[in-house]
Every structure is written in C-alpha cells, then in structure tokens.
C-alpha cells in the first residue's frame, strides 16, 4: 500500500499565544513547535497499517514554514519511510494547504491507497483540510475517527459525533481518514529510530512547485487580538466546614439573582 500521512507543525499546547505587532498573525519568534497532537494518531495509524500490509511505504507530507522541521523528523523517527516538505509562510489557509498537499502527493509519483490526517490542527482549528483534500483528489473521507480496522483494502471506521455516539462507516481504499484522540497510542521515537531518521529522504518543494499560487487564497485574516479579560470575580473560602453551607447558599443566590443563569 502507498500510505500517506499529512501533518502540521503547531505551537505546543502550553504555549502562551500573543498577537504580533501589526495583528496580522501571532508572535512566532519564541515558540516551541510540536507535531499537531491529532497528527500523532494519524502517523501511528499509518505505521500500524503498514505493519499489517507487507511491502507498504509511509510517506509523510507537511506544508508549512521551515524554521523548524521537528514534526517531519519526529514522524520519520517514529517509522515513516520518507518525507515531503512544502515550504510556505505561516497561517496558510485551508484551501491552499489542501491544494499544496494534493500537489505534493501527485508529485511524489505514488498513487495513494490511504491518506491519514489529524481531525484538526490545534492552531487554526478549522477542521477543513482532510475533507477538502479528499474532495480535491476525488476520494471519500471519514473524519473524527476513533476506531480503524482494515482488511484487504476495506476500512471499517468509527466516527465520533455529538454526545459520544459513533457512526460506523465502511469505505474501500483509496480514502482519506481523519484521526481523533483515542484511536491508538502513538509510539515514541526510539533512539535508533531517531538516528535512522537523519538518513531518510526528505524532499522539499515550493508552493509554486506543487501548483499553488497567491490567487488560491480564500481566507483573509487580520486584527489578531487577545480575548477581553474578565473583571476579577468573587472568591469565597469554604475550607472550614462551619461556613460551607453559607458559602454555597451565597453562590447559588448570586447565580440566580446576579448572574441569572439558573
């Protein structure tokens, strides 16, 4: 099988995010970059699928800035066979990203049997790229996948929807599968894996190389700002058993009469 994984590099979840000087994006100079957490499940599922189908290869593709290629190296160290990086600026929109991924996959010369992605990137939180990529490649897609079984190119997938309910899909290869947390337990890169990753092929393309132009931009962002801070709230000490009942009664009264939410 030709297995592809699309990954993104994002700021670590513990990063404090602040707007940049002109509000055109965030300040990126002192950020710790990580592989998008949902993409780790995609890489792991690709490696599991490879292990179950001998002769398969896993190609990992990323579109993004080149300040740091940590995410791709991590995927290679986990066991992916080769990597493709499409260089772009920060905050490329979903349409351009999907188009660049499509171009990079086609340029690789391999016809994908399955493409794994994370269900969303935790930077722009758009949840568009997997479905857009599937549409652009003319493939079916299933998103928010929490269980994935494959037998002879036929995938049985559980997609999580509202209230934790699961939709069970059957879809034949080729398809795009967008992975959620809980799908598997991503492996850590071993030391030999990290050493080997350094010698694995990493192709680099520009956006133009993969057929993406400025005119493909669909979303325009501006005015990045911090959300308004709330005024300080009221705090009550109820560590002492003697005043617990009165504190709770007071808070319930405030919820009822001041906040009017119950």
């Amino acid at each position: 099988m030709n297995i592809f994984v699309c990954i993104k590099q994002v700021p670590d979840t513990e990063t404090k995010v602040t707007p940049n000087g002109d509000g055109s994006y965030i300040e990126t100079s002192s950020i710790k970059w990580i592989m998008n957490p949902y993409d780790e499940f995609a890489v792991e599922q690709a490696l599991l699928t490879k292990a179950a189908n001998s002769g398969s290869t896993v190609t990992v593709v990323r579109v993004g800035g080149v300040k740091d290629t940590e995410a791709l190296r991590t995927a290679l160290a986990m066991g992916a066979d080769e990597a493709i990086l499409v260089e772009s600026g920060d905050n490329l929109d979903s349409y351009m990203t999907a188009k660049a991924l499509k171009g990079a996959i086609e340029k690789s010369g391999k016809t994908p049997d399955v493409i794994f992605t994370g269900k969303q990137a935790i930077d722009d939180d758009c949840l568009q790229v997997p479905q857009l990529l599937a549409q652009m490649l003319g493939l079916p897609s299933v998103s928010v996948v929490v269980e994935c079984a494959e037998d002879g190119g036929k995938f049985t997938l559980k997609r999580e929807v509202e209230g934790g309910a699961l939709e069970v899909y059957e879809v034949n290869s080729p398809a795009v599968i967008a992975c959620n947390k809980g799908l598997n337990t991503p492996r850590y890169a071993s030391l030999p894996g990290i050493m080997k990753a350094k010698r694995k092929p990493l192709a680099q393309h520009s956006l133009a190389d993969v057929g993406v132009a400025d005119s493909d931009a669909r979303v325009k962002y501006s005015n990045f700002q911090l959300p308004p801070e709330k005024p300080a709230g009221k705090k009550f000490d109820a560590m002492d058993e003697a005043n617990q009942a009165s504190v709770v009664a007071e808070v319930v009264k405030l919820l009822r009469e001041e906040a009017k939410v119950i």
């Binding site: 349409y95 758009c126 568009q128 790229v129 929807v161 979303v219």
Partner: peptide, 22 residues
C-alpha cells in the same frame, strides 16, 4: 455541528470556495 463540520468543507471544495470555520 458534528455533521456540518464534516460536510461543509467538502461542499466548499466542490465550489473551489472559501470557508470560515466556527
């Protein structure tokens, strides 16, 4: 919703059109 978050990106792709999420 769960359904629209899955559906709308595919539909927008059919029109090569832009989408603002959430």
């Amino acid at each position: 919703t769960s359904l629209a978050k899955d559906l709308m990106p595919r539909l927008s792709g059919m029109f090569d059109a832009g989408m603002a999420s959430e």
